[in-house]
Amino acid sequence: MTTLLEIAALGKRFGGFTALQDIDLEVMEGERLGLIGPNGSGKSTLVNCICGTLRHDMGSVRFAGRPLDGLTAHERTRSGLARSFQLPRPFASLTLAENLRIPILYAVNARGDGALSGPDIERRCLDLLAEVGLAEKAQRLPRDLTQIEMRKLELARAMAAQPRLLFADEVMAGLSHAEVDEIIALLFRLNRQGVTVIMIEHIMRAVMELSQRLVVLVAGRKIADGAPKEVVRDAEVVRAYLGE
């Protein structure tokens, strides 16, 4: 297996506040990684720094052997990263199908290998919506969706970019037991197709079921990295979560 994502000594500050410090992380091609930590521990900031939504201050990020430092967010998406936003950010004036059309037009087709055209794009949008259970609402606008459906749309839009590495940022919050199982199955399916998955999640059942490896952030630092069963027994992790 080859290293897909390589983060070295990554640091990010907001004014005087250190959001991330000295983060080292390697992710292998095809891996399923869980990223957990208390609220405000820097999980989303880390995703934002990797995906280019924020600029990191220290360290470096390499993806598929290329440095990402200095690339804009859309260049990173085109190079094979995709993310869902923790708070869904749909394109409000576009239908669900059109929401998925954006990454197909601007990420997939911009890569130049096998651009999709007219009817193929439409079919692909509908297929993706069907995968997350939103096929019937393809022609509706995001304002007609429930919060839970918005999360599914968010995930579908990230998948539409055909990424090599997918960040699923709390896509399961608020979902029912059965729906969580559906999304887990979906992420497994994607992973079998070769997509590396990094899941940021509070629902431990999902994290334990999906992750091959677990990384824990606390107050902007990585405090644990290893096999899920061992990490959750780790004294420091337990302390961070139970707040001793």
Partner: peptide
């Protein structure tokens, strides 16, 4: 055209547009 979709994505949410591969600038 695709340009129109890109414009609409920028209008609705520029950050999400970038994340979807739209070269917003």
């Amino acid at each position: 055209s695709g340009l129109g979709y890109g414009f609409a994505a920028i209008r609705d949410d520029e950050g999400a547009a970038e994340a979807s591969g739209v070269p917003t600038l």
